[in-house]
């Protein structure tokens, strides 16, 4: 079943810059897709159409049969987004409050919120930090907090924009482990990155973007060797003709 269907999607910014240009794409429920491309290739712009943060100049995005434009609130509930800058998406004064922010916006009852928050914090192993101030968490913990924030809303599709930027090695492994676990639990995962090394081993599908267009779409094994033609560094192993290895091993 296709959970995301994108038809002829284009976005032109007010200053005339072209963000994305006539994109057609379908994503099945439970898929793990990596979007790669240089700075400015349109990854973030594409992602922001999935939950209606940007309105298309042309075309539609359909989530599980319903267009984003028709029901943006449903789209935001369904597609949870983790942004590049972990600090500027913290809204709560404590870890608990931050995770509760989404469910509170949905107008849920207090006891249901409490239950969802504790489930989400358990899922990302942050339960012991519930009363801490989010700004004092480590980089990896902040990203996991952001993940908990969208899990508590009940999102089925999880979208990550550069989830590994600014993280140290343990931080990368924490977040990667989290993403892989959520994928196994049945979530659809979309990741934008220009650094394939860390995720490619777990992806089922690799999409290259350039200047607002999708120029390659296929299994990582098939199109990984072309990476450097599109301004993305290929993983070390594949440069030497070997299979990439997971960062979790």
């Amino acid at each position: 079943m296709n959970i995301i269907e994108i038809k002829n999607l284009s976005h032109h910014f007010a200053d005339g810059a072209i963000g994305i240009d006539d994109i057609n794409l379908t994503i099945r429920e439970g898929e793990f897709v990596v979007f790669a491309g240089m700075n400015g290739s349109g990854k973030s712009t594409l992602f922001r159409h999935l939950n209606g943060l940007l309105t298309p100049s042309n075309g539609t995005v359909i989530l599980d049969g319903v267009s984003v434009a028709d029901d943006p609130k449903r789209a935001r509930r369904m597609v949870g987004m983790v942004f590049q800058n972990a600090d500027s998406q913290i809204v709560g004064e404590t870890v608990y409050d931050d995770v509760a922010f989404g469910p509170e916006n949905l107008g849920l009852k207090r006891d249901i919120i409490a239950q969802r928050v504790s489930e989400a914090l358990n899922a990302v192993n942050l339960s012991t930090h519930a009363d801490q101030r989010p700004h004092l968490l480590s980089g990896g913990e902040k990203r996991r907090l952001a993940i908990a924030g969208i899990l508590a809303m009940g999102s089925r599709v999880l979208v990550f924009d550069e989830p590994f930027s600014n993280l140290d090695y343990p931080g990368i492994r924490q977040v990667l482990n989290q993403i892989v676990t959520l994928h196994h639990a049945g979530h659809t995962i979309l990741i934008a990155t220009h650094d394939l090394e860390k995720v490619i081993c777990h992806a089922q599908r690799l999409i290259f973007m350039k200047a607002g267009n999708i120029i390659r779409d296929g299994a990582p094994n098939d199109n990984l060797k072309e990476a450097e033609r599109f301004g993305v560094r290929a993983p070390c192993a594949s440069r030497f003709g070997k299979e990439p290895v997971s960062w979790l091993l």
Binding site: R77, G80, N85, V91, L106, G149, M153
Partner: peptide, 11 residues
């Protein structure tokens, strides 16, 4: 950035 992140969480 914060406003966008809040929007994304159905504010």
């Amino acid at each position: 950035e914060l406003a966008v992140a809040m929007d994304a969480r159905c504010y």
